[in-house]
Each structure stands twice: as C-alpha cells, then as structure tokens.
C-alpha cells in the first residue's frame, strides 16, 4: 500500500505476524488438552520405551532378550495372533454381506442399537455371560443337544473357543458398523449404472463395489485387529490364561504388576505395540495398491 523507504521496513508487531500464521488467543485454547495428552499418553509411552531398555540386571536389551528367549513368553505373540487374525477376518467376512443388505433398509436404527449393546457393555460382562451361556449346562449346548446336532456338550469355555466367541460378540458389531458406514458411502447410482451396462449381481460386486470398498475394509481390518490383539479380560476369564489363551497382554500385565518387573512389562507392551504396527502397516500397504478417493457421487 504505502511506499516504505528502503532499508527501513515498518516493524510488524509479533502479535500481528503470529496472527497472520493462524496463531492467536483462540489457537492457544488447544494447549491445555494437548499438554494433558502429551503428559498422560506420549510421555508415558516414551517413558515405557526407556524403561524397557533399563532392565533390572544385564545389558540394555535384557528385557527383550528375556521375552524372546522364554518360550512361554515368546509364544504369547503367536497365541494372540491366532486369536486376533481369524476373528477379525471372520468379522469382516460376515460384516460385508450383512452391510450390503442393511444398507437397503430404511430403518437401520433398531439393528444398530442392538449391535451397539455388546460394544457398550464391554468384554467383562460378555465374558461373564458367556461363561454360563456357553457352559456345559448353558442354553447354547442344550439347544444343540435338543436339535441333535451334537451328542455330548461341547467344551466352549476355559479354552480357545470361549475367547474366540467373546471376540466375535464384541468385535463383530464394531467391524459391522464401520463397514456399514463405508458401504453406505458408495453412491447407489454406481450399482445402477453397472446393472444397465450388463453387469449381474456378482460382477457388480466384484468389479465395482469391492475395489471401492477395499481401502475402507483395510482401515476396518486395522482398527478391529488392533482391538482384538489387545484382548485381555476375556482371555483371563473365559480362556485358559496359562495355556492356549496366554495372550501377550496377560504376559505384560503379569510381568509388570505380579512379578514387579516394570522393565519387562514395558518391553512386552512395546512388543505388543510393534506387532500391531507391523500388521497395520502390512494392511495399509496392501490398501495402497487400490483406488483411494471419493466413492460417493462423481459430480464435478
């Protein structure tokens, strides 16, 4: 605007310069919450990482070495993966076709409300309910016996299958509701267009819906897997916590709060985080091979 003599730039106050970059009083409102999360989440995480490298005895990697050299501890990674990956895949496999039908319903609220129940009630309550329901005298076995599907009660509690069932009961609704939001995000006109161009139901799904859905399903897989991998109360209450469902979170908890080895506990927690990260990165890496962009209308 006004010409400024060369060599004497007008001093712009710091306040104005900061405001121009988007920093003013209002921006500062983010600080308290940010500090809280840094203090309660980021710092403990870093603290845990450092702690895991400061074992009670031995070199800095001793805690990790303990974990990987003790088969009882090492196998928890495998035990947990064997639970988390099949249940997550099963939940997605069930969720996709159901979401495709529910998407057409005009009143989805009742179903979604019922499905939100187990997620809200949480794993502890589901574990307690399943202990009776899946037990040898429970309704589940009685029904199968009455229908002559089985000859003797199945053993479904205090083993792998009890935890499996609890991961499906609490995991499926979560997976389903995420999948439903992705499926509903696809413009129904795309299906109509494919149909008028000669694609039957199977090819409409394979050529149009599936490619558009894969990125969303990858995210759904990651979120569901990460939850399932951290399975804890149901593995203790409903599984065989010293045997087939000796999952990694049990190992971490026992190390930190029963054996009071904070370094080993943190090391196991870090391993748990690392395994989750690896699986998530693999899933997201696979996702990048597919189209990622708007799947709604293609209006310009």
């Amino acid at each position: 605007m006004t010409a400024v003599p060369a060599g004497r730039p007008t001093a712009v106050p710091l306040r104005v310069r900061l405001a121009a970059r988007g920093i003013d009083g209002t921006t500062m409102l983010v600080v308290p919450a940010l500090l809280a999360i840094v203090a309660l989440f980021v710092y403990p995480f870093v603290y845990g990482l450092v702690l895991s490298l400061q074992p009670k005895v031995g070199p800095f990697t001793a805690s990790y070495r303990t974990f990987f050299s003790d088969p009882f501890l090492r196998e928890t990674v495998w035990n947990t993966l064997v639970l988390a990956i099949p249940t997550t895949l099963l939940n997605i496999l069930l969720a996709v076709p159901i979401a495709f039908r529910v998407r057409l319903m005009s009143n989805q609220r009742l179903l979604t409300t019922i499905l939100v129940l187990p997620v809200t009630l949480g794993t502890v309550l589901v574990a307690q309910g399943l202990l009776t329901y899946l037990g040898p005298q429970g309704w589940f076995n009685r029904t199968l016996l009455a229908l002559h599907v089985i000859g003797a009660p199945l053993k479904l509690t205090n083993n792998y299958w009890g935890v499996f069932a609890s991961l499906v009961i609490t995991g499926f609704p979560f997976t389903f509701l995420l999948t439903l939001s992705y499926v509903s995000g696809i413009d129904p006109a795309l299906e109509h267009a494919a149909a008028t161009l000669g694609a039957g139901a199977a090819r409409r799904f394979g050529r149009i819906f599936l490619p558009l859905l894969v990125p969303g399903l990858a995210v759904t897989f990651c979120l569901s897997f990460v939850q399932a991998f951290a399975v804890f109360p149901s593995a203790v209450l409903l599984g065989a916590p010293a045997g087939s469902t000796h999952v990694i979170s049990i190992a971490a908890y026992q190390a930190a709060f029963e054996r009071y080895d904070a370094s080993l506990g943190s090391a196991i927690a870090m391993v748990m985080g690392a395994v989750q990260l690896v699986v998530v990165l693999l899933a997201l890496g696979a996702r990048s091979l597919f189209y990622r962009g708007p799947v709604g209308g293609t209006k310009g």
């Binding site: 413009d187 006109a189 795309l190 109509h192 267009a193 008028t196 000669g198 293609t298 209006k299």
Partner: peptide, 19 residues
Amino acid sequence: PPERRGFGMVFQSYALFPH
C-alpha cells in the same frame, strides 16, 4: 433384470466408476 435389457443409461449424478 436391468443387466439383460441392454439399454444405455445416463444418470443425473453421472455415476462414473471413480476407480
């Protein structure tokens, strides 16, 4: 069914396959 009628259709929202 629509896929066996062989008609061409142009949609209000274009409905182009985004991928």
